[in-house]
Amino acid sequence: MSQHVNDGRTSRWLAYAIVGVGALIMLAPFYFMFVFATHSRTEIFNLPPPMWFGDDLFVNLKILTERLPFWRNLGWSVYVALASTALTLLFCSMGGYAFALMDFRFKKALFALVMATMLLPSFMGMIPAFMIMDALGWIDEHRALYIPGAASAFGIFLMRQFASTAVPKELIEAARMDGCGEFAIYWRIVLPLLKPALGTLGLITFIGSWNNFMGPLIVMRSLENYTLPLALRSLQSPVNTEWGALMVGSAIATIPLLILFAVASRQLIAGLTAGAVK
């Protein structure tokens, strides 16, 4: 018996050690991103490399803002992420509500279509996306980044799942009996009940847009209009890359994500694995 207990304790400590070291490996690149952001190019490539913060943060920031219209790029990232979040929440909650609680013709087929679009590989959209944007005259326009994906299949799926348990059908029928209009029902009854799911979808959409690389890569043309990921990449060159400046830029692009994650990691993880876990 005591042998068994002892066994359990050793293996428990072993588990702590393995999981702990693994977690450090996962976090190390983030730590060094912030450390390197405060060192000059030559210091970063010292041997051994710096392990603690230095005092070149503002020098690096100055180089960054000289090489890039950095604050503008940051602004565009914020703008596109907010616009795409707002539109996605509106469209997906409307669609999810209809699929969850209303009856209409072709409902099953249309929902199957929604699910099918989730499985479509991203590279299938690359060339067609460029062509349609070109035809619409949306090349180098930010609306090309937030409109096409605004009624995302994932969002509609998430909203439908949530609405079908959180919104009682009787409540809606009662409101209808009382002469409440369809938009009023959606706006005053359904939306408030969907709040938790809206929060999750909002976070996911914001982060997705913030990190989006392929979309802007295909449609955006001028450095002035770039969002952060594209702008940062343009600093990378085979020779003389300003690593310190790049690290500051990457760190600034990462900070909002760290804050969102610190505040809502449970909600985010649950939302991002929703399709899988349910």
Partner: peptide, 25 residues
Amino acid sequence: DGVIGAYFLPYITSTVAIAIMFSSL
């Protein structure tokens, strides 16, 4: 929650930031 968070964090980070970081590492 903290441990799961540490492992999950790279998944929500920008690929560009990650790739830039790793090309220096």
